[in-house]
Design a binder for these strands. Sequence first.
DNA 1: CGATTCCTTGAGCGCATTCAACACGAGTGG
DNA 2: CCACTCGTGTTGAATGCGCTCAAGGAATCG
Lengths: 263, 263
Amino acid sequence: MSAPVQPPSNALIRKLEHYTRLSEEDRAAALGLCGERVQRFRAKDDLVREGEAPRVVRIVLDGWACRYKYLEDGRRQVVGLFLPGDICDLNVFLLREMDHFIGAVTSVAVAQVTRDAFEALTLAHPRLLQALWWETLVNMAIQREWLMNLGSRTAFERIAHLMCELYLRLGAAGRTQGLSCEWPLTQAMIADITGLSTVHVNRTFQAVREEGLVEVRDRVLTIRDLDALMQAALFSPNYLHLGQEGRHLDANDGAEAALTGRG
Amino acid sequence: MSAPVQPPSNALIRKLEHYTRLSEEDRAAALGLCGERVQRFRAKDDLVREGEAPRVVRIVLDGWACRYKYLEDGRRQVVGLFLPGDICDLNVFLLREMDHFIGAVTSVAVAQVTRDAFEALTLAHPRLLQALWWETLVNMAIQREWLMNLGSRTAFERIAHLMCELYLRLGAAGRTQGLSCEWPLTQAMIADITGLSTVHVNRTFQAVREEGLVEVRDRVLTIRDLDALMQAALFSPNYLHLGQEGRHLDANDGAEAALTGRG
DNA sequence: CGATTCCTTGAGCGCATTCAACACGAGTGG
DNA sequence: CCACTCGTGTTGAATGCGCTCAAGGAATCG
């Protein structure tokens, strides 16, 4: 666990390659996007505030961020989580003002891509653009699954489901080790994500641990029994669409494309 | 209320023009999209089923549809509503299989646009494509607001909020009359949308009526006091982004573009 | 070492659920 | 025509999941 912080094998690219195999040029272009105006934020700082005019597309390079909103009377709800490799809204700049906040959960590094840079790069790399579209569709699917969580799952299931989802999403970005992943979420944060009170999150989280499904130590989550956890959460990974769904569009650096049988 | 079914002043175009003013050619292109392979479904039929391969982009021309999912044990959750003029996922065909159902709430007419037709038309009409992007971003914002609903609002607020949202969305599509709009949702449906039981929806719905906020007769909702309803719902319309946010990109058929003061 | 943040526990209450029954209208078939 | 079903809306009663309020403990940090 005390491994040096490796220059983190670009999370965006690792994730996009769960959709299709990118060519060298596509990878280079993606890396280019991730190199644009990199900025760091400390935990709890806001990257973007409600009412601001969106000017750039942001890509999370490292650390966790979240979308959140307030009700007038102060109730707070987290409506999305950004993990390394996640993109904060392709094309946001079409909107005049943000309707929510984006805040740093941990300390965070983000690339901020201007509209022009974004359009130039994607125009030159249609396959990359398509992979980014896929990312957007998956994000929408994740939002829908969160609606399932809040609307239909019990407290226990919600928390278990969140663990499954984040573990798999981090895995897709190359940020897991065996059955362990970072777990920087405070219980208050989990409460805002799951729509529960902190007290109830505390008790329910304990229940999940006492069922022997997971362990948490030093901000690291370790899943003891992934199948059991997924079952308890009524978790089905299909909505993450991680199965190389754009294989037939692979860059054919080699000759593999012809072998896929798709297309 | 027994007005003839007027050829319904294309809802998609009316809605998109809340983003930017389209040129005649853009409008023609949009109409072209809406004319592609029109198909009708009866209430409760599925347009798309989970597990299917998405092949076309669907545009709702008339009637209501919904996205929904099941949990393994049968709990059902509606995760989105499609009103006239709404688009069922730009670019879905990038995904290998659907992770949810799309069902007809009322009888519905949809245009089914193939990938090629879609790409050809938008390639030729970049401003239209941009408007469709805006539509997508607004849909994502609506999903987020639904998360607010389920996570943070009380039953009363959820139902009131749903009324506000649908009234304004229908208004943007040109489907309201004064403070009235169609209201085809059964209470069981509202339960699946709001994550409540049908029994509780019934009682809460009554409470909303008894507060004098709304009336429902013959599947028509009439809002008695919009301000009060919005206040009771903690409703803020900003997330619908209906304020001509792309004005500076208007088609300059005439000379208005120069007058907007934006850009 | 004090301050702050985070986690934990207890007790009581309440919003929403479940179960069960009934009313009503539309549609169907005998 | 009536009997029947089915979908929808309505109501009552009992239970419970999750909330609020309150306080104390543990960990982290300047």
